[in-house]
Simulated scan of single mutants.
Amino acid sequence: MSTLLLSEEDPAAPESIRLMAELSTALEAITGDGGNASFDAADVRGPMACFVVARDAAGAALGCGAFRPLEPGVAEIKRMYARHGTSGVGSAVLRFLETEAAALGYQALWLETRLVNRRAVDFYEARGYSRIANYGKYIGNPLAVCFEKQLPSPPEDA
């Protein structure tokens, strides 16, 4: 894998919007729903939220992801995407988000995907996410599957 540069960026920037549009197109093809109704860019701005873009060494955007506050101690992963044909981008974005969330004091990350999206289900399970009961708007939705990962506590200052 070539060098990846990850940085927090504005979810309303043109490249961010383009990445999320690609994600919506891919989700629509897999699940029949692009997921746009479950995302608000305002939710991933601010001191307890994060939107990250992964770029190659030449600066080309390759993927993105975000988290937003969900409930005390819990953030929700949103808009995870890696361009088709890339390798390691999704994992790098997810590690970045996990590190940032832990640094902000979150104890856990939650997320939802669709059962039919086997690639996403397998991706999260392979990275230590465990299935949990559906939460929030996903309660009672048999097409949805929710996951959680407990985050390490930040080191205490001596």
Rank of each mutant, 00 (worst) to 15 (best):
Y106Q: 02
R79L: 05
L70N: 10
R45H: 02
A49D: 04
G63P: 08
G34W: 04
N141A: 01
R68D: 00
A41S: 15
N141Y: 00
G35R: 10
V89H: 11
L143N: 03
V145D: 06
G90P: 03
Y135F: 15
R79T: 04
D43M: 06
W110V: 15
G85V: 12
N141H: 07
G140P: 01
L115T: 02
V116M: 08
N134G: 01
G136P: 03
A82Q: 13
A126T: 10
R114W: 08
K78H: 05
V145F: 08
G128Q: 13
L97W: 14
A133I: 01
G105W: 13
G65T: 05
Y81V: 00
M80A: 05
A58S: 14
A108P: 02
C50M: 14
A108K: 14
N134K: 00
D122T: 14
E125L: 13
G73V: 15
E98I: 11
P152D: 12
Y129L: 08
D40L: 10
G88Q: 03
T86R: 06
T99D: 15
T31W: 01
G136F: 12
F96N: 07
P72S: 11
R68G: 00
A60K: 12
V89P: 07
G46W: 02
R83M: 15
V145E: 03
P47W: 00
A82I: 02
S87E: 11
P72M: 07
G140L: 04
G105K: 09
A41Q: 10
